[in-house]
Simulated scan of single mutants.
Amino acid sequence: MYVITHPESTHHVDGLVGGWYDSPLTATGLRAAAAIAETLRAAIPAHAEVELYASDLRRTAQTADVIGELLRVPPVLDPRLREKSYGEAEGKPQEWLRERFLTPPAVGERIGHHDGIPGSETMGEFGERVYAAMAAIMVSDCAYQIVVTHGGALTFTVASWTKLPIDALAYARFHGASGSITELREDDYFRNRQVVRLGDTSHLATTLG
């Protein structure tokens, strides 16, 4: 499985809160999506069966469209793969969120902690949603799967694939920069699941400068 975090979108450059705010990719983001697609094309055998899934927000759907066009596979859009909802903060300046955001405690309830923003999700609600999407994806025995999602959702995507319980993520996070590729692999003998590479952006260096 290859997990892609969508590349640069307009909310990044405008300094706005993302979440479910439906921002498109920038021109730089579209070039990065093309670099991601080329990298996947080189890694996946030409005649292999491939499944492609993505969050239904524009920035992820656009990324999946670029990948799907090159690999000749239509993306399946799933709203459960969206980023964490930040409720009323979405589309507002990051400073607006910082002034109101209630950080989780160092000790105590963290997964169920609410950040104080009306309409936002807790990390537990966010995680359960992404875990449900991944459970549906992992039913398939397709040899190669690609999941296009968001930076915050990467933690739950990787953790669900490795079968970590959500409660184990009270502190742990998996980080991947925008436009990164994470490679997950299950071996054919022991059926162990490995994180082969996490948040790799080497494919962007030569393409974007």
Rank of each mutant, 00 (worst) to 15 (best):
Y2A: 13
I4L: 12
S9Q: 05
H11I: 01
H11K: 05
H12P: 03
D14T: 03
L16V: 00
G19H: 05
W20F: 06
P24Q: 03
L25F: 03
L25I: 01
A27M: 00
T28G: 10
T28Q: 15
G29L: 01
A32D: 04
E38H: 04
R41Y: 15
R41A: 15
A43N: 14
H47W: 01
A48F: 07
E51C: 06
L52T: 10
Y53K: 03
D65F: 00
I67P: 10
I67E: 04
E69S: 14
V73M: 05
D78N: 09
L81G: 08
L81Q: 05
L81W: 01
L81A: 08
R82K: 11
S85L: 01
S85E: 01
S85D: 01
L97F: 05
R98W: 05
L102D: 09
A106I: 05
G108H: 06
I111P: 12
H113T: 03
I117N: 06
S120M: 05
G127K: 13
E128V: 08
E128S: 08
R129L: 02
Y131F: 15
M134Q: 09
M138T: 13
S140K: 08
Y144Q: 12
T149W: 06
A153C: 10
L154Q: 00
L154C: 07
V158F: 03
W161M: 12
P165A: 04
P165D: 04
I166F: 07
A168M: 10
A172K: 06
F174A: 13
G176M: 13
A177V: 05
A177C: 15
G179K: 11
T182I: 10
R185T: 11
E186R: 09
D187C: 08
D188K: 12
N192C: 12
R193T: 14
Q194M: 15
V195R: 11
L198G: 09
L198E: 06
T201P: 11
T201Q: 13
S202H: 08
S202T: 07
L208H: 13
